[in-house]
């Protein structure tokens, strides 16, 4: 269903993890190419983690944290957003489409949004194809 494109989703355990659990609970079938990595807060996700994910074979990365202004740790989600932006710039500089990384804000109840974001990213990745890293490095 998801094809060969891998998505790594760094999920905040206060919101996104619960949303992902809920999506399963209510059987919202979404593409099976997503791998959730549980983090204590989206603010724990470093640019390094995002870039390494691409290096290790991910085609897309989602960073999922709490709703704006409602972060369990106050500023974690805004920091994550900034880092995602920065990762986007670094990716573009290395010849990888910035669209491949995305910050998502959701509440623990928003299972639909979780499933939707994963599906959207999958669609986007189908258009973009595998990352240049897999074909022996980016072509400039």
């Amino acid at each position: 269903m998801g094809g060969n494109n891998k998505i790594v989703a760094f999920c905040c355990e206060n919101s996104a993890c619960a949303a992902a659990d809920r999506a399963g609970k209510i059987r919202l079938y979404y593409p099976d190419n997503v791998r959730v990595i549980r983090v204590p807060c989206a603010g724990r996700v470093d640019v390094l983690h995002i870039l390494k994910a691409f290096e290790k074979g991910a085609d897309g990365v989602l960073v999922m944290g709490c709703q704006e202004e409602a972060c369990r740790h106050l500023t974690g989600n805004t920091r994550a957003r900034e880092r995602v932006k920065y990762a986007e710039i670094l990716l573009k500089e290395s010849g990888i489409d910035g669209e491949r990384v995305r910050m998502v804000n959701l509440a623990p109840e928003m299972a639909h949004k979780f499933a939707q974001e994963v599906s959207e990213m999958t669609e986007r990745l189908k258009g973009l194809g595998p990352t240049p890293i897999k074909n022996g490095g980016p072509q400039r």
Partner: peptide
């Protein structure tokens, strides 16, 4: 988590 985020989430 092989139940909520794996078995249950996919057909």
């Amino acid at each position: 988590n092989i139940r909520e985020q794996c078995s249950w989430a996919h057909k």
